[in-house]
Amino acid sequence: MKNSYANHAKPPMSNSDHNAVHLIPVYKTKLKSSRLVEKTVTVWSEGDIKTLKGSYLCTDWEVFQEESIDHTVTVTTDYINFCVEGVIPTKKVKVYPNNKTYIKGDIKRVIKDKKTTFQNKDRGELTFANELNVFLQV
C-alpha cells in the first residue's frame, strides 16, 4: 500500500551487507487521534420517575395557557425541563474514542469477571464465564 508506512534507514546489523529499514505506520489510531469526551448523563430510577410523576400531578397546568401557542409551548417545555433537572440525578461519564456503544455496564462486568477468573486459574468458574459469554454474545 502506497504511503501507508514511513520508512527510516538504519545501519546494517553487525557484519551484514543488507541495510535495515524501520517501517512506522502513518495511520494514527482513534485512541491517539481523538480526545476524551466527558458527557453528563441522567440516571433514571423507578423512585425518581414516581417523584417526577407526582410533581406533574400536583401542577396546575391551566396557569400555562396563554394567548400565543409558541409562548405556551416554550413555558411548558421549560417547566418540564426544570422538574426533570430538580428530580432526576445526573452523573459525568468519560467516553473514550475507542469505546463501543453497545458495550454496557453488565457486559463490562462479565468481561472483568472472566479476566479475573482466568488470572486466578479457576477452571470451573472459567467454564461458567465462557458459557455466560456465549449467552450474552460478547
Rank of each mutant, 00 (worst) to 15 (best):
M1W: 07
N3H: 10
Y5P: 00
N7P: 00
A9P: 04
A9L: 15
A9C: 10
A9W: 12
P11S: 12
P12K: 07
S16D: 11
D17M: 14
H18K: 15
H18M: 12
N19G: 08
A20Q: 09
H22F: 13
V26D: 02
K28L: 14
T29F: 04
K32L: 09
S33P: 01
S33A: 13
K39I: 05
W44L: 13
S45A: 07
K50S: 13
L52N: 02
G54D: 12
L57E: 10
L57G: 01
T59M: 11
D60R: 08
D60M: 05
D60F: 04
D60H: 06
D60C: 09
F64N: 01
E66D: 06
D70A: 03
D70N: 05
H71K: 12
T74S: 08
V75L: 14
T77L: 08
T77Y: 04
V84T: 12
V84Q: 09
E85W: 02
V87L: 05
I88A: 01
T90I: 06
T90W: 04
V93N: 04
V93W: 02
V95H: 15
Y96H: 13
P97W: 08
N99I: 01
N99T: 08
N99K: 07
K100W: 01
K100H: 06
Y102W: 15
I103K: 00
D106N: 14
D106R: 12
R109L: 10
R109A: 10
K115L: 15
K115W: 12
T116K: 12
Q119A: 15
N120T: 00
D122Q: 09
R123H: 10
G124P: 00
G124A: 13
G124Y: 11
E125G: 08
E131Y: 07
L132F: 14
N133A: 09
V134M: 08
F135E: 05
